[in-house]
Simulated assay, not measured.
Amino acid sequence: MSALEGLIAPAQEGAEKRALPARARRFGTLRLFVLGAVLPLGAALLWELAVRAGLASGRLMPPPSTILATLVELARSGDLALHVKATLARVAAGFALGVAAGTLLGMLAGASGLARALIDPSLQGLRAIPSIAWVPLFILWLGIFEASKVTLIAVGVAFPIYLGTLGAILSVDRKIVEVGRSFRLTRLQLATRILLPAVLPHYVVALRAGLGLGWMFVVAAEFMGASEGLGYLLVDGQQLGKPAQIVAAIVVFAVLGKLTDALLVAASAPLLRWEDTDSHAAAAREG
């Protein structure tokens, strides 16, 4: 073997070894996706067979074929894209505002015991208020247009972000901070090298919880006189007696919620690549 071959061979072997875990991860992700689809697809198939066999009428709970036909019709007419865009825009705006407010309040309460004593009791009390209770107040204050809807979503998102940020800051091990100080790290270095890595995994979980509540609150928001959005489809289906349209809107909510959560997990994965724990791997696989 020549000298050149001697240099190339180890490099090729190293590349092959690095490629194996990547292929294993892709196979594992595909396997988890297939396993996750077994339950909903199996339940849908069983219900379709039950209706076709005459064991159930399918009037109030339509079979999957009817729901699929409704989705196709909504897509062909352009209504589905219109309502999906309206709902996505509201969730995105409310999520951004809620994340900003929840993060700032959580950082303030986590960094200062005095601030925590001042704001935490009030925020905990407000957190217990049901989402639907805010609706008449926001309509009175902000009207029935987009401002009230986005604000309601932001309120729902802010509380889990606040709790996650506060809990993450309070859970930072003081010994790690003392080690950083003993190495004479500046405040910026202490924040970026110690505090941020310690807080980030918990913060990502809080973001996912906030996003989930954002999708829940958008339904209540779109009950406030909306003429567009998936929530409007739910109300329209209930008023006109269209159960297939109601279930179709629920299915779209579920799909969009899962897709946005997966995007959030994928976006945060590079920031958590340093973390080598089973819990993080499980969270990443869920996305």
Rank of each mutant, 00 (worst) to 15 (best):
V199F: 06
G167C: 03
A209H: 14
P160M: 04
E146G: 08
L213I: 06
S148A: 02
L142M: 08
T165R: 00
P201H: 11
L196W: 13
A209G: 14
S148N: 04
L211T: 08
I194T: 09
L140I: 00
R181F: 03
V172C: 14
R174P: 15
V150R: 01
R174F: 09
L188D: 05
R193V: 02
L142K: 00
K149H: 03
V205P: 02
I139E: 10
A168R: 01
A158V: 05
T192R: 15
L152C: 09
F159S: 11
V135K: 03
A147Q: 02
R184E: 12
L185Q: 09
I176L: 15
F138D: 00
I153S: 02
L185P: 05
V179D: 12
V205W: 08
A154H: 00
H202W: 14
G212N: 03
L200K: 00
V179S: 14
I176R: 12
H202A: 13
L190A: 13
I194N: 09
P197I: 10
R187L: 05
G156L: 03
I139S: 03
L200Q: 01
I176P: 08
I132K: 05
L152V: 02
F138C: 00
A147W: 03
R174K: 09
W141I: 01
L213K: 05
S171A: 15
G167N: 14
L170R: 07
F145A: 12
V155M: 07
K175Q: 15
V205A: 07
L200D: 07
I176A: 15
K175N: 15
P197N: 12
L137P: 08
T192H: 10
R184H: 08
R174M: 10
R187A: 14
R174L: 10
P197S: 15
R193A: 10
A133E: 07
L185I: 08
R181D: 05
A191M: 07
P136Y: 13
K149G: 00
A191Y: 03
G210L: 06
G143N: 12
I132H: 07
F145K: 03
G164T: 00
L188W: 08
V177M: 14
R187I: 08
